[in-house]
Design a protein around this nucleic acid. Structure first.
Length: 579
DNA sequence: GCCGTTTTCGGCCCGACTGTTTTCAGTCG
């Protein structure tokens, strides 16, 4: 079992306990444990081996014992008993909007509903409306909810969510009375994928705006609307919430809707300790006075905290760090100096080396590597070794033309073949300035096999960087089933670097593994994998991964001064560990 | 079930919105 699978077990327990009617704080404890496991820097099994389970936040004696049982037997008696007690089909019933554990239990106990299909049948038969607390509207809402569930697409990639949000922000900002409008929620925290789109608006009188939103041609249906919040369904089953407060309360609203939920809970608990109450409207003092905030900064200051950037608001220790003035100064795009993984017209890119180099130069970069595909990847127009030599001549010409402002390197993205060998021979690999080794095919190999395959590349003396290591494609295709304990251990020994692939459909390696790698002293680059000049701007998404992983600029080699980085690239891999 | 410079027992965020109610429960973020 990997961390995600452990986490799913505890989320499942929480869901079942909720339906069963267990006290909410117990279910919260299981959810908190699941979240902690997902964020863990290292495998849960490794923590167990080191006897450190109870050091993980949210894991105490009871949950630690359950983890031990799972590791020993791959089973959990507690969960099995729970599944015998509560129909597991009710878990999908919980997915219906506006159906939570209490209603699910009601449908089960009073109408015999044990699955989504049975709920739909019961609603269609008019049975649901007869239950206590239910009525015709509730029944219709449930049918609409089941319908929405079927329509509902997957989560959105960050760039998709951003472009949708930007279009709406542009429209909202032009509506009468709107003073400010911003995207909030997981989009503002730069979470890897986004579920719903959240927009916050500063406006004194919101009713006209709410009406205008409801009648906007791109709104498929209105899911709910009030004075301060409206919930809309957009084409493709995407949900959008628009929240409003008067301008002098915009700060608390933006803070609240930005989340995360866990961050807000922790922040409000901190406020409580200080005799204050924090809400989306204001901070209320013990004697009932309201403190208003037009901006977020004052909220954190009032609570005795340094300002916490949205990317860090996940309740992973950021509040304590802000209290103690030891939040990291996070990486900015402007601090990057190098781009080592791009493609040109020599393989499947659409811009020439000169165009790409000029694109890098105009973005303030000092080192650019054309890292075209190796020969084996036929679909991407990979280069045979002799073509690499021809490309080198062009690189030299462009270098001469552009002068000293930028150093152009001749690299390659080399395929790690299904048997673990590389696509170029050692002589060619040694000759290249930068070697990025990547998996593209046979990603569904069993864990042992694909791990060994990647380890081969990691150990290879001429491989500088492992490209998009997991091979995941967001939002749907999972990455390879790698054994990360082995992968990172081998990387640490070999001196190889990992990239954060900045393409929003990759963001690979992810923030959890980035943090773990950096703690182990493994070098990290941010690369765009750009196949066109404008894709160089995707780097902002890679930067967001580094920011969410709490990295400081110097921990990313892509920020290094050119001389230092070129020295690093030229020295034998085994020696780099000492730099 | 977890946790502790207000607690080893008694807490565990706060408000909007909806639908069903005659004042509130459930859900959501």
């Amino acid at each position: 079992m990997n961390n995600e699978q452990f986490a799913q077990v505890f989320d499942r327990i929480a869901d079942l306990l909720e339906i069963k009617g267990e006290v909410v704080f117990k279910t919260l404890a299981y959810r908190k444990a699941a979240e902690s496991i997902r964020d863990l820097p290292g495998s849960l099994k490794a923590f167990h081996q080191q006897g450190k389970l109870m050091e993980i936040p949210g894991i105490g004696k009871a949950i630690a014992e359950k983890i031990e049982e799972l590791i020993a037997t791959e089973k959990l008696g507690f969960l099995e008993r729970l599944e015998a007690e509560v129909p597991v089909g009710l878990l999908e019933v919980l997915q219906v909007p506006d159906v939570g554990p209490r209603k699910a239990a009601l449908f089960w106990k009073q109408a015999g509903v044990t699955s989504l299909a049975e709920l739909e049948a019961a609603a269609n038969a008019g049975i649901i409306r007869t239950l206590p607390g239910m009525g015709e509207k509730s029944e219709a809402r449930i049918l609409a909810g089941i319908d929405a569930l079927k329509r509902r697409g997957h989560r959105l990639n960050l760039d998709t969510a951003r472009s949708i949000a930007d279009r709406w922000l542009d429209w909202i900002r032009h509506q009468p009375g709107v003073e400010r409008a911003e995207a909030a929620g997981s989009l503002r925290r730069w979470k890897t994928t986004v579920g719903d789109i959240d927009i916050v608006v500063a406006i004194k009188e919101p009713s006209e705006l709410m009406k205008a939103l409801a009648s906007h041609p791109d709104v498929q249906r209105v899911l709910g609307t009030g004075d301060n919040k409206t919930s809309l369904e957009l084409p493709g089953g995407i949900n959008m919430q628009v929240w409003t407060q008067p301008p002098d309360r915009f700060g608390t609203l933006l803070q609240f809707v930005s989340g995360s939920k866990d961050h807000n809970v922790a922040l409000r608990a901190l406020a409580q300790k200080q005799g204050l109450s924090l809400s989306e409207q204001c901070i209320t003092t013990a004697d009932g006075k309201e403190m208003l905030f037009a901006d977020e900064e004052g909220i954190y200051k009032t609570l005795g905290l340094d300002f916490i950037p949205p990317e860090l608001r996940e309740d992973r220790g950021e509040i304590k760090a802000a209290e103690e003035h030891r939040l990291p100064r996070l990486l900015e795009v402007s601090q990057l100096t190098a781009e080592l993984h791009t493609h040109s017209t020599w393989s499947d890119g659409i811009n020439t080396i000169e165009e790409m180099a000029r694109g890098c130069l105009s973005r303030g970069l000092k080192i650019y590597s054309a890292s075209d595909h190796s020969g084996g990847l036929g679909i991407a127009g990979g280069l045979k070794p002799e073509r690499l030599r021809e490309r080198k001549k062009e690189i030299e010409q462009v270098q001469q033309k552009l002068g000293n402002g930028i150093t152009i390197l001749g690299g390659a993205e080399v395929e790690i073949k299904a048997d673990g060998t590389l696509d170029y021979n050692d002589e060619t690999l040694a000759w290249l300035d930068v070697v990025v080794a990547s998996l593209h095919t046979s990603l569904r190999q069993p864990r042992d096999e694909i791990t060994a395959r990647l380890v081969n590349a990691i150990r290879h003396p001429h491989v500088d960087i492992i490209g998009h290591a997991s091979g995941r494609l967001l939002p749907n295709r999972e990455g390879a089933d790698l054994d990360w304990d082995i992968v990172l251990d081998e990387a640490q020994k070999s001196g190889v670097a990992f990239e954060i692939n900045a393409n929003p459909s990759r963001l690979d390696i992810d923030e959890v593994h980035v943090r773990q790698a950096v703690e182990m002293g493994i070098p990290i680059f941010i690369n765009t994998d750009a196949h066109a000049v404008e894709q160089l701007d995707l780097v902002v998404y890679g930067v967001s991964v580094a920011r969410r992983a709490w990295l400081k600029p110097d921990q990313i080699l892509s920020t290094w001064e050119p001389d230092r980085l070129l020295t690093w690239l030229k020295m034998p891999k085994a020696n780099r560990k000492n730099l």
